[in-house]
Design a binder for these strands. Structure first.
Lengths: 188, 188, 188, 188
DNA sequence: CATGAATGAGGTTTCATTCAT
DNA sequence: GATGAATGAAACCTCATTCAT
């Protein structure tokens, strides 16, 4: 995962993976058919990790605004703690999701979040605190995008803006900003 | 650009580039030192393209809400029309912006947009239509992120959600959604 | 060694080396970092060979004139039998000894000959058979040079003088000549 | 000549030669058929240079010991002043004198030195100052070899002996040494 | 006399993968 | 379960040379 995360699928080296793993290169082929199968395994693991974490969220037991705030914070922190998730996804998108499409495992562990977010939005609308007509898929993508893009594109953004966007203060400001944008949009 | 966009820096092949360009492989080395120098040239060109397009925007002559809507639509359409910009940037971020940092050209053509967006936000606040305390850099990154992530991660998102997010209808819905999110956040 | 000897460092071909060695080209890179590292290994081996041979000389157990004659004959025969030593050295000198300077191995196996030759000269001087004031380093270089130049530059010398200087008779005459020059100089 | 001298025939680059000459690469091909023809031209020029210089020697007008001393000093100084001569010759020998053999020009300008040296040796023998039975070709090669090897192999020798053999003092000592060796051998 | 553009052949090196044990 | 040795295909890059003007 580390090798793929830092170098991408194409840039990763079997030699590098073997060394990081402390095993002989040949052993990798004992367990995995080829490099792409190994990549898929890494991808599946990162998806499993995030699904696992999502299960702790319990959005259904919170009042709607709090639930959304929690989802935002969770997303932000997970991406921050798991940069390999971002780079693995970028690699997979470069390959037009060809591995993901083959993966039974990932298809089986579909996220409950969109469903849960839909419920939260509906509750909020009924309570009169949220606006109506919000597509939970789009909102989910927006929350993800607001966090993902900032972190994934950090090197170019920091360079272009001449500002260290990974500094602790910049990071906490970003979380506040994302929360304000989403809540500002949702709240009546 | 096309080759780098589809395959990434590591995956692109000099042979492929030569073929697409209709020239001898050797000729590429006549003009460019090596693959990375060529990549940087492609990157610089895409930056030049977007800066060129930005100059047509004239945000300063519009009333604040209209100016923001225009910036959003511009960003969305540019990304949609120039998918290579997204993948080149992803490649560059995978390499921690190492080429960009070396590029005098890119540093010289810094975007006027953040400055202009700051002016628009200030005007809107004085007019009483926009909320105060908005950092233009963060808002700019948010607008970009809302569009970028949807398009760049489209293959995995479409797969995960089991929904064709590149269908024309989905695309126009996305633009509306982004606009609503940003305006919902900004407007008092 | 054979390939480097015949073609020089620049002219040697990895393909040629692989073929001579009867192995796959790729295997060479399994054991050696690159062409220059392989060249250094060849160079180190030739040095090891001559040092090994030098150890059999036992100059210290001979009377001085005999010791010098033996050193001359040894030098001559070693060069004659190991033409690759001459060409490898020429290559290395063309590169200003840059590989040799990096080589721990060669530095560690410094020749005992200069020391031994110094002892022999001193003994001869005390016995009254040799002249005094002879720098063993210069004498060593002279013995080497008298042999080396004749053999290394044989193609051009034979061409210029219109005389086959590699003919057996010419070779034995050369050894006699070198011996006479050195002994004529040394003996009182 | 400079490029060939520093890099050898194989290592020299047409680009490098063009740059040093301050002309377009194509122009070289206007005057010379190919790289080897250019190399031959360089080689011929260095030979012409040394023949030109030899003509100033006038050995026949000096008494024998003085004539030999002068030849030694001349050889030493010429090699020292023209290091390119040494490296060009080394290259040519690596190629087994194949260019030299083709060269009409070099064959036509055969050195008068061996003939002259033969005369000097004969005069010296008749005067009773020189030993008899000295082959002028071998002596000529010896004088050359004593100088050539020291200079041509200087990088490796300096490295092996851990001593800067190109220092001014070392150089003047070398000339003295060579002179002593040759005169010590020749004089009765 | 002079040059910028272009090229084919071939060079070193890399890399995923397999063999043999 | 584990490994050192081996390999074919292909990658990037180099270089002498020629084309067109």
């Amino acid at each position: 995962m580390a090798e793929f995360a830092v170098k991408g699928l194409g840039g990763a080296r079997i030699d590098g993976i073997a060394e990081r793993a402390g095993v002989n290169k040949r052993l990798i082929y004992y367990y995995f058919d080829n490099k792409e199968a190994l990549f898929l395994a890494a991808l599946e693991t990162t998806y499993a990790d995030i699904r696992e974490a999502e299960r702790e969220l319990k959005l259904e037991s919170l009042d709607p605004p709090e639930a959304v705030r929690r989802l935002i914070a969770f997303t932000w922190k997970h991406y921050l703690k798991h940069p390999e998730f971002l780079t693995l996804l970028n690699s997979e998108n470069l390959h037009r999701a060809k591995h993901l499409k083959q993966s039974k495992r990932v298809r089986e562990m579909n996220s409950p979040l969109v469903q849960l977010l839909g419920d939260v939005l509906e509750r909020g609308r009924r309570d009169g605190v949220f606006r109506g007509g919000v597509d939970p898929v789009h909102l989910y993508i927006s929350i993800a995008g607001l966090a993902y893009f900032y972190l994934s594109n950090n090197p170019t953004l920091s360079t272009i803006f001449g500002r260290d966007l990974m500094a602790p203060k910049a990071l906490s400001e970003r979380l506040s900003h994302i929360t304000e944008v989403v809540m500002g949009y949702l709240l009546n």
